[in-house]
Design a protein around this nucleic acid. Structure first.
Lengths: 398, 398
DNA sequence: TTGAAAGCGCTAACAA
DNA sequence: TTGTTAGCGCTTTCAA
């Protein structure tokens, strides 16, 4: 039980909280006597409840309370009950600052993502990791980045091995290669190493959290924006331009959303055609795509990948076909260029930088403060156009 | 001087750092012997330099080092030099966590914003404050909200007085009333109370930070989206619907951007007409607006305020004029409704919740960790449509 | 002008 | 199963 004793002292109140066994636990001189709501004591100027207070209330030691809080060691039923009671009554919240300082642990976090050198998209993820690194270095967390080759499954396997050797306390992973990733997750689950997934979801995995976007809905948004741009209905192409088939599911979800938008809005006067380009040389791609455009008299194009977006834009630009609507993904350097050039009309921002940044934050908060992240975080489907693109480029990680 | 002594021990290294006077300050068994860069020692697994280390290097006490670090109290030239030297050599960085814990200070933050009861926009700001409150309460920061009446300048003055009496360590302000706010800022500057501005910028003020949006550009985005929606050029209206003229500058910036978009894109086939509605009763407003719509054969409407957006939508809806394009502001409950109802086509999200949340975060980080926020934070101009609105509603404060 | 020492709230090793 | 105690790195009071 909590008893409160208030004595007026000029403009102030002397406040005592008497906790259980009649112990005068605290005394403070404050401006207002505070209030009790739901059996809990609230006082603006007042100290928070500490472990020590809980211990005194429950008639046990701080170590016992600590054991209850962290579910470690063994505790008698009786002690457990008393502590839980006190916790409940006071609405105890741990002081995370004291906790990190006290534990004085060092945490190692690994990232397992595609090599940023060859791909601006992953380069942006990378920069998100670096930003997080700066934020957390004072908290005794060390982040080590491991990069695999986006085009080689074996590279993923090999680098995953390196990550294991690093013995991280947590990992941020872009699980591009479904199968290889799954094998890796098994090891992680065994060793109880928590991991956060981003960009690509793997349904079988049991990560701390997945960070990404709703791909189906993202396809719908692209359809919405593309049709807003197109003046007269006609042929519309879905282009899957990727280096490997790994992304198959990923991309077809977007296509499904894209097509459903037309269906649901009864836009029967549009004809949607699908094309895939895989492992093409640039000149071959250029030729093929041009063929597609001319032969089908395309009114609009939806590209399902970020890199594919500027590859397509480049072809359209060279062919002088700017009247074709073009919608794609992400604020890559080249995409930004073609947006200003009015070749690309809309970009959906997948925000790789923020995805990575948030992933690290979740990991750190989990390790340091035992704070559980949400199981799934789906980022907003940001529509970027010529007029608002700068506002996105200038805005940080807020 | 820093001396390092490394001894190989199987796969590990015993590392000693010998700091000045030959004191063996630390010994750790680590995986790699670390490196020296720019005369500083870096070691992944290694402890940071502490005040104690500096004190030992300089041959003084920790108290003296603390005095140097915080420029408080008097120190002899000699001691100062020695400490500065050690600080320099080691690249000392304070442990902010220990610092906050040690000082055990309590911070009071006040918010000075319009009363949330009557306006969903400010209600959302409010909820951002509450979210921040939850995040920070365990860190000994107490947030007190002070509300003024959006329609009365005097109320701002009065409540500002109350804020002062509360003696806050920092304030978050939505400075709706230009003049009154300026007077308030003077007092704050005098008393050296830091404040963060959000929503409305006041050029003369010297806040810690301003959080808002680029209003001009926001008007341009609205024009862009509205014209994407409109099928054939024609009359377009700019509607300023507000309860008072205070927002004048605020709103005309948006209008300027809106108009410039048409100019810059040579869309001469559009005719832009401006209307103001002030202090109307709902029925009068409804009648007047309907008049405007019919008489001008409007193709599209741009509403510059969030509340005005659903007021307009309601009129359009009742009149069954859904073919008129409508673009406005913010994810207010009523706006969301009319977006699903296909009356509103696009909303620009000003994100009042996040603006307030971030404002508090900046204030707390400044007070607790001496972390300086950016001078200006302009939020991205988020385009919200029927297809991506859910992704915005579901996403939290990330 | 300086230093010793007692906190801040929590953790964890050790003893009982 | 429980309690005691010495940290974590910094601040701050008090005495010298």
């Amino acid at each position: 039980m909590i008893y409160i004793c208030v004595r007026k002292h000029f403009a102030y109140f002397d406040v005592y909280i008497l906790i259980s066994r009649g112990i005068d636990c605290r005394k403070r001189r404050v401006r207002a006597p505070g209030i009790i709501r739901k059996n809990k004591f609230y006082m603006p100027d007042f100290k928070n409840v500490r472990i020590k207070d809980i211990a005194e209330m429950a008639g046990v030691s701080v170590a016992t309370v600590d054991r209850v809080l962290h579910k470690r060691g063994k505790i008698s039923e009786k002690a457990l009950k008393k502590v839980m009671d006190a916790l409940e009554k006071t609405g105890y919240k741990p002081n995370l600052i004291a906790s990190t300082l006290g534990s004085n642990k060092k945490y190692k976090i690994a990232t397992l993502i595609p090599n940023p050198v060859l791909d601006d998209y992953w380069n942006q993820s990378c920069s998100g990791v670096f930003n997080a690194q700066e934020d957390w270095e004072q908290y005794n967390v060390h982040i080590e980045s491991f990069y695999f080759n986006l085009h080689e499954r074996d590279s993923f396997k090999k680098v995953a091995e390196q990550v294991l050797n690093f013995e991280p306390d947590g990992i941020l992973i872009a699980p591009i290669f479904h199968q290889e990733a799954n094998a890796f997750f098994e090891t992680l689950d065994e060793r109880k190493i928590p991991y956060v997934l981003f960009n690509t979801n793997i349904p079988e995995a049991k990560p701390l959290c997945f960070i990404g976007q709703d791909l189906y809905q993202s396809g719908r948004v692209c359809a919405e924006m593309l049709t807003a741009r197109i003046k007269r209905p006609g042929n519309v192409a879905v282009l899957h331009i990727n280096e490997d088939i790994q992304n198959a599911v990923h991309l077809s979800e977007k296509e499904r959303g894209f097509r459903d938008f037309f269906k649901d809005n009864r836009m029967d006067d549009y004809n949607i055609i699908r094309f895939e380009f895989e492992n093409y040389s640039e000149s071959a791609f250029s030729r093929e795509l041009l063929d597609v455009i001319v032969q089908n008299q395309l009114e609009g194009i939806f590209v399902s990948t970020s890199k594919g977006t500027h590859l397509t834009a480049s072809v359209i630009d060279k062919a002088g076909k700017r009247d074709i609507g073009l919608v794609g993904y992400d604020l890559l350097k080249d995409n930004i260029h073609y947006m200003y050039e009015r070749v690309i009309n809309y970009l959906i921002n997948q925000n790789p930088r923020k995805q990575a940044f948030l992933g690290i934050s979740y990991l750190v908060n989990y390790l340091l403060f035992k704070k559980m992240p949400p199981a799934t975080v789906l980022f907003p489907l940001e529509v970027v156009s010529r007029e608002n693109i700068k506002s996105y480029l200038n805005s940080g990680l807020n």
